[in-house]
Design a protein around this nucleic acid. Structure first.
Lengths: 216, 216
DNA sequence: GTTGAAATTAGTACGAA
DNA sequence: TTCGTACTAATTTCAAC
């Protein structure tokens, strides 16, 4: 009832993709930059730091949330302090045409913090946080290995997390003129089509992995 | 500013480990659980959801922040919407005794969202977000390859991020009795010492990597 | 640790530029 | 659109229990 960040008071109540039309300008970026470092800042303070009025800050803030640019606000918890001192990466090779099963099983594993489908020799990378090494072992050998969709796994332990930035924004790399396509006048920067990707030494996705989401 | 081990404004101004004395109980965990999903919830609403009084919620909230259990509050931004549509993992082999250099160079690369030191055949894993594939290529071949500490890299693209949980807590796996050591009476669960780690198929850290933080 | 007050601040709804 | 102001509602703080 007293939730601060509920989003019922917006026009579109569509759960999926909404508001793809919001063009982000420099002020939007600045707002994101502040918010990713201090997610609990008041909108008034945000307006002051960005250099706009409070009313504008409220409007933009709400627009960013409604459009899905800001997906959620979260607290970063020290997992060691919370009792999960061990972090491991599990690289999974998934049996073809069983991706749907794999995803379904993952959803039932709350200890998995992150899972990404990747190119390369493995199909997916999973990051898990566990109280001890034995728990990782149990997870991999008992729970993951018992999933039919899992063909093979390779586990690696994280010794230290050097850095974890809240979120990377384009402004971090270099001030791009605008998130639009470059005008035909200026010399086109190197694109994916004219760059020697072979130098990157990455392995393409295994065959049959192109269709990730619609699978039996 | 984006180093992980920063300790924001709190009573004790010690930069390193502070407040190691806070023992987390079930209510603390519940607070973390709520806060990781909704970082902008008011303390009043938090108290209501957790089932304690407002004052207690404030006390515990502040204690969690001061003790570093809650490291920061952040906004999760849709990187695609923000103009960074490509995510890649770069596995780096670091030249021995050049870890300090490697870390220093990483600090100057804002496009790096995450970096972890791992066991296995590679030494570090970096997650980068870029506007296009060409930018990844440029980063790897020009910026990373030019670092003396970097011996070799292997790049993999992320095709889809299946899940990203705000933060995993022990309560997610199963209700553990307490984050303390088990009493001698109960049968000890399998620990790291008596578990066949060989079945996990993970490769140990390369030699000379044990000393990660104090290096020349 | 909890309840209930006051003081402060946040969020909203208008106008005007 | 953005800004500035006033109004309303909420939160935070501080008191006593």
């Amino acid at each position: 009832m007293t939730e601060m960040s509920s989003t019922p008071a917006s026009g579109t109540g569509v759960p999926g993709r909404i508001g793809i039309g919001l063009q982000l300008d420099a002020i939007h970026m600045k707002i994101l930059q502040v918010l990713r470092e201090n997610g609990r800042i008041s909108v008034a303070a945000l307006a002051e730091r960005v250099g706009i009025s409070r009313a504008s800050a409220y409007t933009r803030f709400e627009a960013l949330r409604a459009d899905g640019v800001i997906k959620r606000f979260t607290a970063e918890v020290d997992h060691v302090r919370a009792g999960l001192g061990i972090t491991a990466l599990v690289f999974v090779t998934v049996r073809q045409q069983m991706w749907k099963q794999f995803r379904a099983q993952l959803a039932q594993m709350p200890e998995v913090e992150y899972c990404a489908i990747t190119t390369g020799q493995h199909d997916a990378m999973i990051l898990v946080r566990m109280p001890d090494v034995a728990a990782v072992h149990a997870l991999v050998t008992e729970r993951l290995a018992s999933i039919p969709a899992v063909k093979a796994t390779e586990t690696v332990f994280i010794l230290d997390e050097v850095l974890k930035r809240p979120y990377v924004l384009p402004a971090d790399s270099r001030p791009r003129p605008s998130p639009r396509r470059p005008s035909p006048a200026e010399p086109a920067p190197p694109s994916a089509s004219n760059v020697p990707l072979g130098k990157m030494r990455f392995v393409g996705a295994a065959e049959g992995r192109a269709d990730l989401k619609n699978d039996t």
